[in-house]
Design a protein around this nucleic acid. Structure first.
Lengths: 202, 202
DNA sequence: GTCTATATTACGATAGAC
DNA sequence: GTCTATCGTAATATAGAC
């Protein structure tokens, strides 16, 4: 039953992270004060330091958690041998995963410059390893002649940039549903990297 | 010859804007103080208020100037009747124009949330009118059967997102030159929106 | 684990001398 | 047009009571 008065570490900790996530995403890391975060949680500012050594760690932990989630979810996806099927899987996974966590996605690319140099290096490494997975798919497709891509690294960054765009404007309840957006983007990605069909000799 | 001592309005004003631009782009609007800007210019903080009523106006003026430059430069470009040529022109213009002013581009999409509501509305309107130009090109191409695009508005946002990606990673002196990047992106854009070639009947 | 209180520093903006 | 000085406020972080 009831715990010792004022002992809430098991629920306050997550609430601090949630409040920081939402406030950082809305106003930006630099514009949010520890007092604001504390106010959202319902404690005084000093109490936050039971859960984080400082504001910087709060930001880093959110971004690190997001990147870890991304790579773990990606690793749990099926990885078809066929490069075209693999590219479709990557495209649809990327759109869905990022759509499901707009705040985490937003701070993870908007607040990179507010990370300390060491923290930046770590996040950047994780982001890079995600990009490399797409590049590898493209290289496999080029190798078997399914894709026509002169520079797989450039194409990987271009595809990810295009897919990231969805998060900046898509809102539930609009004219098009997320599955429709997903299909439209897969059509564009597929065409952008595919080799032309061999001409019909009819 | 020499002007009155301390009278530098004709050079200090632009220097304030330049310092603010670079500092906002590097550290973010919220993380930059008026004292920092003044330090870069070589004056005391109070002197800045001879050139801007407040910090917010400094940000807005930079973004407004950038959007005006963008639309003016775009208006000065040739506008071919052929949709494919028009799309190529837009693609190459976009990459070059944005490459030439990385700081302006960076703050113009990173600092949108730090604009006051009225200022945001104005900048958003200008950005929208730029996007509309690409959408119009796509619609014309669809009308004559040159493009296969189910949703021109979605495609326009996707293309711009892809092209904007270049600014986040391209640095002079790397393995590929900007003209090469431009060509690679034009190849992808063209393929992503183009109707398939009619089959050869040989 | 949370509180109150505070140390220390910095912020945006203004006033008035020169 | 720029300076020094300052007003009023708020920042991060810590100390010590409970």
């Amino acid at each position: 039953m009831a715990r010792t008065q004022g002992s809430h570490s098991d629920i306050t900790g997550p609430r601090v992270r949630e409040a920081a996530l939402r406030l950082f995403a809305t106003h930006g890391y630099a514009a949010v004060s520890m007092r604001q975060i504390a106010g959202e949680v319902g404690v005084q500012a000093g109490a936050l330091y039971n859960y984080t050594p400082d504001k910087q760690s709060l930001l880093f932990d959110l971004m690190k958690g997001h990147m870890d989630d991304l790579l773990a979810a990606r690793a749990a996806e099926p990885g078809p041998d066929d490069p075209l099927a693999a590219l479709e899987g990557f495209t649809r996974f990327h759109i869905r995963f990022h759509h499901d966590r707009p705040d985490e996605v937003f701070i993870s690319y908007m607040e990179l410059r507010n990370l300390s140099p060491e923290n930046f290096k770590e996040i950047e490494g994780l982001r890079r390893s995600y990009e490399d997975q797409l590049e590898a798919i493209l290289r496999r497709g080029v190798a078997i002649g399914a894709f026509d891509v002169a520079e797989p690294k450039i194409a990987a960054m271009a595809v990810i940039a295009m897919l990231n765009g969805v998060n900046t404007w898509f809102r539930e309840g609009g004219r098009l549903s997320l599955p429709q957006i997903e299909q439209l983007h897969w059509d564009m990605v597929r065409k952008a990297v595919s080799a032309p069909e061999p001409p019909n000799h009819g």
